[in-house]
Computed example of a mutant assay.
Amino acid sequence: MRAIEKAVAECESVLRADLTYNKEHGIWPSTNRVIERMLGMRHDLGKAYQELYKQLHSHERALDSFLDMLVYLPIGWSPEKAIKARQDREELVSVNSRIASLATQLGGLLSRRTEIEETSGFSSETHYHILNVMKDAAEHNHHFGFYVEDELDGLYNQYDLKYWPTLSDFAEALAADARDAIVVADNPVTAAATESRKPGLTDFLRAYYSKLDERSMKQGGLIPDTFRLSDSALASLLSCVLDLGPEKLMSAEAVKRFRQGERSRKAG
C-alpha cells in the first residue's frame, strides 16, 4: 500500500470509529456532518492526511486526539460562533453597566426610605435587616431552610442592627462590583478566538492553534510539541470542516499571512 493510501486509511479509520460511536449513541449530529464531509473529500485531503500520519502515527493516540479536536472545533468556534461570542461579551459589559447604574439608584432609594421612616412619623413595614431579605429570598430553597436558616437566626438574635450592613450598603456593594467588573474569557480558546477587533476566519485559526496547544504534550496532552502542518494542509482541513464554499476557501497563503502576522504581533 502506498504511503498516501495508508495515511488516508488510518485517518478515515479514526473518523469512522468516532462517527459510528456518535450515531449509535444518538449524539453530536453537527460533528457527524463534519466527519461525513471529511470522508467524502478523501481525495482533497489525502496530502493533509499524509502529513498527519507521518508526524503522529508513532505517538500513541496522537492521531485520534488531533482528529477529535479538529472535527469538534467548528461546533464551538465556527465564524458564526465567534461572532456570537463577541456579542455575548459586549452584552455582558452592557449588563454590568446597567446593574451598576440601577443598583446605585436602588441604594439611594433605600437610603431615602430609611430617612423618611426615621423622621416623618410614617413607616411602610418593609424590610430593614439584610437577613430578613435573605430569608424571604430563600423561601423556596429547602437547603437554606434545613441547613442555614437556624444558624442565621442565632446570629440575628445575637447581634443587633449596628453589626450588619444596611440594605443601601448592600445595593451599593452590588453597584461597585458591577461597575468595577472586567470581562475576561473563561478559557484560552475563547480568548484566542475573540482577540481580534473584527470577526473573520482568523478567529478560527486562533482557536485552532490555541486548542492544539491545549492538547500538546507540554500541556499534558497527546500531540507532540514538534507537530506542525504545512500551510496548504491546514488550509485544506479547515476549509473542509468549516464547509467553506469555492469562493471562500481558506488558502495556504492566507494561513501563511496569519502566522506571520501572529509572529509580528507577539514580537511587538
Rank of each mutant, 00 (worst) to 15 (best):
E5P: 00
K6C: 02
E10V: 10
E10G: 01
S13P: 11
A17M: 09
L19M: 06
T20Y: 07
N22C: 14
K23N: 14
H25Q: 12
G26W: 04
I27H: 04
I27Q: 09
W28T: 06
W28R: 13
W28F: 13
P29E: 00
P29L: 00
P29V: 00
S30H: 10
N32S: 15
V34G: 07
E36V: 06
R37C: 07
R37K: 13
G40C: 10
H43K: 06
D44K: 10
L45S: 02
G46D: 09
G46T: 04
Y49E: 11
Y49Q: 05
Q50L: 15
Q55W: 02
H57V: 03
S58M: 07
H59K: 09
E60C: 05
E60W: 13
D64E: 08
L67M: 04
D68R: 03
M69R: 13
P74G: 07
G76A: 13
G76W: 12
K81R: 15
A82N: 14
A82I: 05
I83D: 14
A85G: 02
R89G: 10
R89C: 06
E90P: 03
E91V: 14
V93Y: 11
R98W: 05
R98N: 06
A100V: 06
L102W: 09
A103D: 11
L109A: 09
S111N: 11
R112I: 03
R112V: 05
R113Q: 14
R113C: 07
T114W: 14
E117Y: 11
E117G: 14
G121E: 10
F122M: 11
S123H: 13
S124P: 10
E125D: 15
T126C: 03
Y128L: 06
I130K: 07
V133Y: 01
V133D: 00
V133M: 02
V133A: 00
A137M: 11
A138C: 15
E139A: 15
E139G: 15
G145W: 01
G145N: 11
Y147Q: 08
V148A: 13
E149N: 05
D153F: 00
G154N: 01
L155P: 01
Q158G: 00
D160Y: 02
L161V: 00
W164Q: 00
L167I: 06
L167P: 02
S168P: 07
S168H: 02
A173D: 12
R179F: 12
R179Y: 07
V183F: 06
V184A: 03
V184Q: 02
A185S: 15
D186I: 10
N187L: 03
T190F: 12
A193S: 11
T194Q: 11
E195D: 09
S196H: 05
S196Q: 10
S196K: 06
K198H: 11
P199Y: 12
P199G: 07
L205V: 11
L205N: 07
R206N: 13
R206D: 14
R206A: 15
E214V: 09
S216C: 10
L222K: 12
I223L: 10
F227K: 06
L234E: 13
L234C: 05
A235P: 05
A235W: 01
A235T: 04
D243G: 04
G245Q: 04
E247T: 08
E247Q: 15
L249H: 01
M250F: 03
E253M: 06
V255G: 13
K256W: 03
F258S: 04
F258K: 11
K266A: 09
